[in-house]
Amino acid sequence: MTPLEELLFRLADDEYVIAERYTEWQIYAPTIESDLALANIAQDEFGHARLWYDVLEERGYEEKDLLWERDPEDFRHSTLCELAFEEGDWADPVVRSYLYDTAERLRLEALVDSSEPAIAGRVGKLLSEENYHREHAQSWLERLAEGNESHHRVQAALDRLFPHALSIFEPGEQEKEIVSQGLRTESLDDLREEWFEITIPYLESLGLSVPEPEEVARPDARGRDGSHTADWFDLHESFTATYHELGFDQPTRLRGEGA
């Protein structure tokens, strides 16, 4: 795998898997309006995954290699994206989205001047959709943090998700080359520091306590090396089963003329 491919798989798989999880809230969200909003975020993230998978397709991969027939161990997303939701735990997608989308903005900004034109040329579209995601997550967080029960639920979600969020910044084998070739203009370590500087004071300002990054117990699965939690293998099985049952020649594409 080239450094470019590693970078693209990390980006695409994160977006795809978190979107797959978000769609589980459709019809189940607390109110009709909140249902529509989260569903939209899921669509955006699927769309972002597709943009990155498209770059891989331009380099010879096919959709079936990228999604449908790829071994689950070959997916490179952060474990934050793959965790199953507990029924009714609306605090989870709110906290997850906040942690994820804050990191997402930082990493997209570090791709604006990528040496790879296929990346630099796409980042603008993604960034423009990301603003809504962060505003949405923060608006929910600030309101839920005010309540009593809801505050506890947000804290519990944060405690559970934070260690997994750290795997967003877990380096892969080609991390050095990704930076030295200018594919990404900042290292993962720097991005993580910036992410701490934004998220920790913000969450603390809401009266939440943030686990100490250096001391918190990290899960064995780190995502970026193909190690994943059991939730991922279940999810992979459930979204690929129909594909295998149907045995179509090609996954159908539905694209606009300007796409």
Partner: peptide
Amino acid sequence: TRQAPSLDRKLACTAKVQDEIG
């Protein structure tokens, strides 16, 4: 949405459910 056998079909399925809730 979960079962859709292509990424674009999946997007269409989820967008359709979103419309229905709308």
